[in-house]
Simulated scan of single mutants.
Amino acid sequence: MDSTSKRYYKISEVSEMVGLPMSTLRYWESYFPAIHPQRNDRGTRFYTPRDVETIRMVAYMVNDKGMKLEAVREELKRNRDGVTKKFETVERLKKVRNRLQEMLDSLHKLR
C-alpha cells in the first residue's frame, strides 16, 4: 500500500493511518500473535508494514464484517492467505469506488 512506505512506524502513526485509538492497538498486540511490534530500549513500539497490514485486516473483519475478536484470531490462524486475498480485493474495490465517485462528482460540477 502507498501509506506503508517506511520500514517502521510509531504507534501514533499507525493509529492515525488505520483510524483506531492507540489503546486498541496495544490490546490487539496482546491478543493477536501476528501483531508484534519491535521495541527499543525505552519501550517505544515500532510497527513494520506487515504489522500495519495485519492491523488493517483485523479492523476490516471487526468493523466491516462484524466478527468478534476470537473469530478473527481463529480465521487468521486457520486461513491467513485467504483472509489476505479477500482483504486486498475489498481494498482495491473501495479505491475503484472512490475513484468512480470522484469522476461522477466532476461530471456533476460541469453541468
Rank of each mutant, 00 (worst) to 15 (best):
N79Y: 08
V72G: 09
R92C: 06
K10P: 00
H36M: 09
E88R: 15
L93H: 09
Y9K: 00
K95Q: 15
L25K: 04
N40E: 08
N40R: 04
M57H: 04
T54Y: 08
M67T: 02
D41G: 15
Y8V: 04
F46P: 00
V62H: 08
T24N: 07
F32P: 03
E75P: 00
R78N: 13
D81V: 12
K94C: 05
K86L: 12
Y47S: 00
D64E: 13
E13G: 02
D105S: 13
T89R: 15
R97Q: 11
D64F: 03
K95P: 01
L76E: 03
S5Q: 10
A71Q: 14
M67C: 06
R7Y: 05
E29Y: 00
G43A: 04
A71S: 13
V14W: 00
K109L: 10
M22F: 00
V52C: 04
T84E: 14
E102S: 12
R50K: 14
K86C: 07
N98S: 14
E102G: 09
G82E: 07
P21I: 06
K95F: 07
R80Q: 14
F32L: 04
G43L: 07
G19C: 06
T24P: 00
L20Q: 13
K86E: 13
V58R: 03
F46M: 06
T54G: 03
E91R: 15
L25I: 12
H36A: 13
E13W: 00
K95D: 13
S12G: 08
F87G: 05
N98A: 15
M22K: 11
S15H: 05
E13Q: 11
I55H: 03
F87P: 02
R39D: 01
R73Y: 07
